[in-house]
């Protein structure tokens, strides 16, 4: 038996068929176990799992707003510390405090709160489920949207070819905070992702994991390809898997031979406006990036 069987994320949620965010939640809880408190900001994962009076969560869970998950998690963690110390609460159990926010709630509107929480050294794990746009509001671009991807606010027009800026490198910005653990992951590599969650939870202090999570609705591909596309993002070098532990950078998965980005791009409607020349441009950009990382 490879994976723990306990299901702390219940079925019946309203995620789309083939939803990658649901896979993130399920894997995180399998890795973390039941002594976990989840903080989830506004977004797909929140909306699809908690329409009153139904919840898909079997762990204590809180949603407050869009931009403050890291601050709320800071409050939860501080309360646990104070109540353990002052009143012997929580039976001195080790409790994981995990925030799970989308790229909009993390890289954009929640960025200040995230930076504050990481800088203050709270013992929390922040997981950014990255689907590269505001999916809950109908696929608008975020700072995590990749170059030339079409979204409803970065449409492919006759003058502008989709998103005109490269993807913001949130994991590296988190690493620059000097926190003890930063990693990237992808739902297509569940062992790797769960190992990183477990490792993060074993470390005292602030931790950050950015997990790539293909989105059938936002990226435009048939639902059965969620895992396949995530795998291609990694195999092409578009989304490298690494961890930075106490400042030490380590690639955790190195494709034996990187696949051409074209294979990944041609599977998704958000890139269908791209010419072979455009794809070449992206290929060169990815080659440069991979060179820097030793991929």
């Amino acid at each position: 038996m490879q994976f723990p069987r306990e299901e702390l994320f219940a079925p019946g949620h309203r995620g789309c068929a083939g939803c990658g965010a649901a896979i993130v939640a399920r894997l995180v809880l399998k890795a973390a176990g039941k002594d976990t408190i989840c903080v989830v900001p506004t977004g797909c994962l929140e909306v699809m799992t908690t329409p009153y009076p139904e919840t898909s969560w079997r762990v204590p869970w809180i949603h407050v707003a869009f931009e403050n998950a890291a601050a709320v998690a800071s409050g939860v963690e501080s309360a646990i510390k104070a109540l353990k110390r002052k009143r012997g609460k929580f039976a001195n159990k080790k409790i994981n405090v995990i925030a799970i926010g989308g790229d909009g709630g993390t890289a954009d509107i929640g960025f200040q709160a995230l930076s504050g929480a990481m800088e203050r050294g709270h013992n929390i794990l922040y997981i950014m489920y990255d689907n590269e746009a505001y999916m809950n509001t109908g696929i608008q671009r975020s700072s995590s949207t990749p170059f030339m991807a079409a979204t409803t606010t970065s449409p492919a027009g006759s003058k502008i070819k989709g998103e005109d800026r490269p993807k913001k490198d949130v994991a590296m910005i988190m690493a620059a905070h000097g926190i003890p653990y930063v990693a990237t992951a992808c739902i297509s590599y569940p062992e790797d992702f769960m190992r990183k969650v477990k490792k993060a939870l074993s470390i005292e202090g602030p931790k950050f994991i950015q997990v790539l999570q293909p989105c059938t609705t936002g990226w435009g591909y048939p639902p059965h390809k969620t895992i396949e596309i995530g795998r291609l993002a990694v195999e092409t070098g578009i989304f490298p898997l690494y961890e930075i532990e106490n400042g030490e950078f380590r690639i955790t998965y190195k494709p034996s031979k990187r696949k051409p980005v074209k294979e990944y791009i041609r599977m998704q409607k958000r890139y269908r406006h791209l010419t072979d020349e455009d794809i070449e441009r992206i290929q060169r950009y990815i080659d440069e990036k991979c060179k820097l990382l030793g991929l």
């Binding site: 219940a10 019946g12 569940p190």
Partner: peptide, 28 residues
């Protein structure tokens, strides 16, 4: 592990079974 619903579970004989109450048919 890849089922977004957790709709595939192991039965007492160690066989995997699809729970059609929840399977949305994504075909991952």
């Amino acid at each position: 592990i890849f089922c977004p619903e957790g709709a595939i579970q192991e039965d007492e004989n160690g066989n995997f079974k699809i729970d059609y109450d929840y399977c949305k048919g994504c075909l991952i």
